[in-house]
Design a protein around this nucleic acid. Structure first.
Length: 646
RNA sequence: GGGCCCGUGGCCCAGCCAGGAUAGGGUGCCGGCCUUCUAAGCCGGUGGUCCCGGGUUCAAAUCCCGGCGGGCCCGCCA
């Protein structure tokens, strides 16, 4: 990371303070490690305690005892940056010299301008982020929304660090699920979309209907040979399936009946039919190519439209069927057979990655948790067809080789932790050590929707489109209440930012309970609150209409909210760097909420433009400019939209 | 059965990895503030056995051990 210290005022401040404390301790004959002091310096819980605090017992016992001697010395030595040092209950509380703080901040903001806080890497990396990659059988649901927001954040973080980033979507257009959809679609004679409905939504219903019809016939068959007790249980299941089917029928009248009629008329074993179809699709049966392409194309275009509403686009869309036909999967299988880890697991060809995982240093290097049990990775079925993870293995190598990536992210749900670990181990086992080390599973927990058990197979899901629609409607009505009409574009920006904000505000490892009413409400602690804060700051600056004279910023009025704000703005580069490198968007959200919570009350109580004293007015303007810049740059990182008016 | 993750006011979340001051926000509820840079705002009030029990420590929401509760994974599914 380029340490352009000018652009990181807090690092400079910290360095100056640490030096003062360390030298003072030295003069008293107490050896303290400056690095320890630096890492322990913290923000006091209350502004009265000063700007920085050092918990003394953590450094050394003697420091506690001799703090009274130490404090004046440190105050003296650090005169450039330190105004006052006090000893209170085991702490050394440090108040910074206002002039120093203001000076550092003014310098940073004037020199770094709109890139304030953004630290670029010395040597840019090539980074590939694969995300969303939802199966092309239904519209994006809310879980994919979380994936989309997080994946785009990862990509943005690297872009802002100066890396060259490629976004990819892996279209899983093979497998049983797709076959169910193709089956239903063909039986219905390639139906057109009813008005007011998107293709992906229609086909999602067809998929669910086909799957449910097959499930029902499976159940009926089982009931024929079931005991009475079992039959009762099955009957209950059947009722629930039928209820699901009826619910789907409500949304697309006629379609379900037609499907049932078609299936019955042919007196087909739907399940067997679908299996055969799946095999034919994987083999690339030319008579199915057009139908297959049409089905996948319609769903993908719907998904693409949803992503566009979210403001997300991909550099490449990779199709699984093309991967299989390119022969890469076969090549990989051949290579696996020659591996020392090749084995047979219950008769099926496999890689014994568990054996590799016995070595603790390998687990360490590949980020596989210490005691996770690793079963062998089965590569193919007895009939020779490949399994998903095998194809993913081939795809991973393709990702590395095509892009020349130094780092590849798979943004994938946490429930896939084991297959993702197997993937890295398998790469290593096959001799791709660098790739194995450079493959990152960026995991996230699932999204639950309040009061709904989700299931794609039953078309029980909340879609990203619905959520966006609801948010757009809400944004409109709130604006109308205030007597303002907002443009479609503004409403969409409010909506998609609100959605992204919710997805990024909670740590990815926590299950997110999505409450539509709450996300739709635009209050404090939402994206809209931040957009509003930014609009206020921008409004002041545009009314001022001139360049801020950073060289004539006064330090006298730096107290209360103004001081808090200055410190927060000074700390931004540090926060930004941490969030962008550790990929913890929730930290940025917390920071922004705090910033807005300081800015807004200050805004209310302390007029900027009406300030008669010039140097104080410049100080206030600098704080407004700092707030604006910090929010704008955070938005670039999080993928939130700025608005001129809210 | 084994593994991974989570448990903080009615509800949601931050803090935990790198232990430190009276545990922070939001939301909800009650009351107040628009002639002054955007009231999607601001101010005040209300509300907590940091899941439980031990241990380590001058100091534990944070570290360790043992429980309890919830989620996910352990397939020739993806």
């Amino acid at each position: 990371m380029r340490s352009s210290s000018v652009c990181d005022p807090y690092a400079e401040i910290r360095e100056c303070v640490v030096k003062a404390v360390a030298r003072a301790a030295e003069e008293l004959g107490l050896g303290v490690d400056p690095r320890t002091v630096g890492s322990l310096l913290q923000e006091p819980p209350k502004p009265e305690f000063g700007d920085l605090a050092l918990p003394l017992p953590r450094v050394s016992r003697q420091l506690v005892e001799r703090c009274a001697e130490l404090a004046p010395l440190a105050e003296d030595i650090g005169g450039e940056c330190v105004e006052r040092v006090e000893c209170v209950g085991g702490y050394m509380n440090i108040r910074l010299r206002s002039g120093y703080l203001v000076g550092r901040l003014a310098e940073a903001l004037s020199k770094c301008g709109s890139s304030y806080g953004i630290a670029r890497r010395d040597k840019p990396l090539r980074v590939l982020v694969e995300f969303v990659s939802a199966n092309p059988i239904h519209p994006l649901h809310i879980g994919s929304g979380r994936n989309a927001a997080l994946g785009d954040f990862v990509a943005r973080a690297h872009e802002l660090l100066g890396d060259v980033v490629e976004r990819r979507y892996y279209v899983n257009d093979l497998g049983l699920q797709v076959a169910y959809l193709v089956y239903g679609y063909a039986k219905l004679g390639r139906p057109k979309c009813p008005p007011q409905m998107k293709d992906d939504h229609l086909l999602g219903l067809i998929y669910a209907a086909a799957y449910t019809v097959a499930d029902i016939s499976r159940l009926k068959k089982r009931m024929e040979s079931a005991s009475e007790a079992e039959a009762r249980e099955l009957r209950r299941e059947l009722d629930s399936l039928v209820a699901d089917l009826l619910r789907i029928r409500e949304r697309v009248p006629g379609l379900v009946d037609e499907l049932l009629r078609a299936a019955e008329a042919a007196s087909e074993d739907v399940e067997r039919e679908v299996r055969e179809l799946s095999r034919a699709l994987e083999l690339g049966d030319p008579s199915l190519a057009e139908l297959h392409g049409e089905v996948i194309g319609r769903v993908v275009s719907g998904i693409r439209a949803t992503l566009e509403r979210l403001g997300i686009s991909f550099d490449r869309w990779d199709y699984e069927s093309e991967l299989v036909r390119s022969g890469l999967v076969d090549e990989l299988l051949a290579r696996a057979r020659k591996s020392e880890f090749f084995t047979y697991h219950k008769g099926a060809p496999a890689l014994d990655v568990g054996r590799l995982a016995e070595r603790p240093e390998i687990r360490e290097a590949l980020a596989v948790s210490k005691s996770m049990e690793i079963p062998p990775l089965v590569l193919a079925r007895s009939d020779g067809t490949t399994l998903y993870t095998t194809r993913d293995l081939a795809y991973t190598l393709k990702k590395f080789s095509e892009s020349g990536a130094d780092l590849v992210y798979n943004v994938v749900a946490v429930e896939q932790t084991l297959p993702q670990a197997q993937l890295r181990l398998a790469l290593y086992a096959l001799g791709y050590e660098r790739e194995a080390r450079s493959l990152v599973h960026y995991a996230y927990e699932m999204v639950n929707v309040k009061g709904l058990a989700m299931s794609g197979r039953r078309a029980r899901y909340v879609t990203v489109d619905e959520v966006l629609d609801a948010l757009v409607a809400r944004a409109r009505s709130l604006a109308r209440e205030r007597g303002v009409e907002i443009s479609d574009e503004a409403a969409l920006k409010i909506a998609r930012s609100a959605l992204r904000y919710v997805m990024l505000s909670v740590s990815p490892r926590k299950t997110l309970v999505f409450d539509l009413d709450q996300a739709v409400g635009v209050k404090a602690g939402t994206a809209t609150y931040l957009q509003y804060t930014l609009a206020r700051a921008r409004s002041i600056l545009s009314k001022y209409g001139r360049e801020i004279e950073f060289s004539r910023v006064g330090a006298d009025g730096l107290s209360g909210k103004r001081r808090e704000l200055a410190l927060l703005i000074a700390r931004f580069p540090e926060v930004f760097r941490r969030v962008a490198t550790e990929l913890t968007p929730e930290d940025m959200v917390s920071y922004l909420n705090r910033l807005a919570e300081v800015f807004n009350p200050w805004y209310d109580s302390d007029p900027v433009l009406a300030e008669p004293d010039e140097s104080l007015r410049n100080l206030k303007l600098m704080l407004v400019y700092g707030t604006k810049t910090v929010i704008e740059n955070s938005f670039r990182l999080l993928g939130l939209d700025a608005l001129e008016r809210v």
